[in-house]
Each structure stands twice: as C-alpha cells, then as structure tokens.
Simulated assay, not measured.
Amino acid sequence: MHINRIFINTYRYDFDHAKICIASIRYWYPDIPIYLIKDYGKGDPLSRKAERWWNIKTLKLTRKKFNWGYGKLEPLFLDSNECFLILDADTVITGPVLDIVANIESDFVVDDEVQSKERFNEIYYNLDRINEIEDTFIYPGYSFNTGQWFGKTGVLERKDFELTLNWSDPPSTKYPQIIFNNDQTHLNFVIHLYEQQNKLKVTRLKLMIWPKLGNADFIDLNNIKKKEGSYPFVIHWAGMKFNSITSYPRADILLFYRNYFYSNQSQITKKIDFFIAAYLRIENKVKNFFKSKFLS
C-alpha cells in the first residue's frame, strides 16, 4: 500500500490541534501531500495561514457541513486511484507510520482493537439488534477507532452506506438506537459486512496509542527528536478536552510538535496565532453555554 496523501479532518474549534498534527506529519514526511477535510458547520476553521506555511491544501467538496466526523468518509468516493491515511485533528504521528503499510496489500489497514461487548455497544453499534438491519450479518469480533486508518479509493461507494446512513446535510444515521450517529459506527459496520461478503480485505495492526492511564509512556521523546523511527504509531487524544495543552497526557510530545509548527515563524506571528486560538476557545465555550441554557 503506497500512500499518496494524508487527510486531516478538522473544524473551527479543533484546528489548533490540527496544527500540531500537521507539524508531526511534516516532521517525518516533508513532501507528502496533506489535505484538510474542513467541516464548516461551526464556521470557518481559519486555516489559511497554516496552509501557506506548510504547503497544505483543502479537499474540494460540494458538501460543507458534516458533523460527527462524516467528512472522513469523503476520500473513499474520490474519482482517483490512490491510497491514503485519514487522521483526526487531535492526533500526531510519532514515527514513520506510512512505512509500516508499504508492503501490505489490503483495501484498509485499521487499528487492532477488541472491545468488550458492553463497551462496543456504547461506541459502535448495538450487537443485540444489528441483525434487524441485516439478518445475515455476523460480528467479526473486532472494531477500530476511525481517528486513524488507511484506505483506498474505488473500494466503497456512497451507496454502500445507504443501508444505515442518510446522506442528508449534515449526514445522519437511519437507526440511531442501533447504529449511532458518527462516521466510526457506519464505517465499522460497512467494513465488517463487506469483509464478511469477501468484497474487501482488511489488515489489522497496532496503530493507535490512546495516551490515557500511561499508555504512551513508553515513547521516548528523545527518540523522536533524533528521528530514530522506533515508534511508527499515531497518538490519539480521543475524547480528551482540556483548557491547556500542558494538561494533556504526553504534553511534552504535543509541545515539541507545536514548537516545530512555529519554527519558521516570528515570535509576533506565533503570539497572534495563540491569541486567535484563545479567542476561539472562549467563543466555543460561550456558544455551548447559550446552547445548553436556551436550547436544552
């Protein structure tokens, strides 16, 4: 699997994280094409400066509102013949992660994850009711977080998701009590179903590191600084929301890549960017406050 480009899914209130993700990619792969999948549902992500600084492009899409990560499905439907890596904004790569799939011949490469039935039912789809949608379906016993996965164009079409997903604006699930409303649940179901039907091939390997509870403590930052390439993984701060970058587990890695992001910019430019990021955090909190106060 030769990776032609990397897509980062982002929106107005997580682009500050996406900058760090961009820096981590450029640190290891200076020339790989990087494209932003922008969700304009909450407003403009304000990414144009970063695009100029680091030679980033925006994926041109007719749809502008996705919500719940559905934009990550769009590269599947591109009219091209290529392989790609999808990343959430709150991720970084810690080594030459593209190299680990170079000799793999699969349609998808996903994180090797197995959840308990209880946890699976909370974050993917309802195992007790999934056969109400497809009576021949057999759960394969695994799942994968969609904050990081490798895929190939031309394998799945938009219509392949229509059993469970409405392509509305933004997209929404047809069966919210069975398959929950986000890209992760639908991509897992479709890949599980089509793998069962021998319509595609999936390879599972250790890809994602969730840094909670010390899971990322084995990663030596000095190794990253030396580019020794010992950690071909993706750290994903999935579900973590803190006011300060220093509050995140493995903040040292985040700070290292953030400093790299601004390494070719002046201190004034950096301070202005920090001010904008702080403003957006306040804006998001104010919007959420009024939403919970008056719309709940």
Rank of each mutant, 00 (worst) to 15 (best):
K291E: 14
D128N: 11
T58Y: 05
R250A: 01
G239K: 01
L85T: 04
L59V: 13
L98S: 00
K42V: 03
K64M: 00
I224S: 07
I272H: 05
T153I: 10
R5K: 15
L193Q: 12
F275D: 10
Y27H: 08
K60Y: 08
K42A: 09
E105M: 06
T185P: 01
F289I: 01
F161G: 14
K287W: 10
K49T: 07
A278F: 09
L200C: 11
L280C: 01
V286P: 08
I224G: 04
I282D: 03
Q148V: 15
N55W: 11
K49M: 06
S172Q: 15
F180I: 15
V190Y: 11
L205M: 15
E105S: 13
I268L: 15
P30L: 13
K287D: 14
K65E: 13
F274V: 02
L255G: 02
N222F: 06
N121A: 05
C83Q: 12
P249M: 01
S230F: 11
Y175P: 09
S266I: 07
R12Y: 09
D160C: 06
H2N: 15
Y125E: 06
S244F: 13
T94W: 01
P140D: 05
I20H: 08
L87A: 04
Y13A: 02
L98N: 05
F15L: 10
D107E: 11
D16W: 14
I104L: 13
A277L: 03
I253W: 11
K49R: 09
D88M: 03
G69Y: 04
K271M: 09
I22E: 01
L61N: 12
F77T: 10
D16P: 00
A277P: 01
A278R: 14
Y257A: 11
K152S: 09
P211E: 08
G151P: 05
N55L: 10
L36W: 00
L87K: 02
I130N: 07
Y40W: 15
P140M: 04
I245N: 05
F137S: 06
L295P: 00
I37M: 13
N181F: 14
F144Q: 09
D79W: 06
G151V: 02
L221M: 04
Y40L: 13
N182P: 01
I86V: 12
N166S: 12
V92S: 00
N198I: 02
L165S: 04
P176C: 05
L207H: 10
P249T: 00
L156E: 09
K285P: 05
P171D: 10
Y70P: 07
N131T: 15
N121F: 01
V97Y: 08
Y194W: 15
K227N: 06
N259R: 12
I209P: 02
V92E: 02
M208D: 08
C21R: 00
D88C: 05
Y29C: 11
E157M: 15
F137C: 04
W210S: 07
N182L: 10
G69N: 02
L205P: 14
R250Q: 10
S24Q: 07
L85Y: 03
N103R: 11
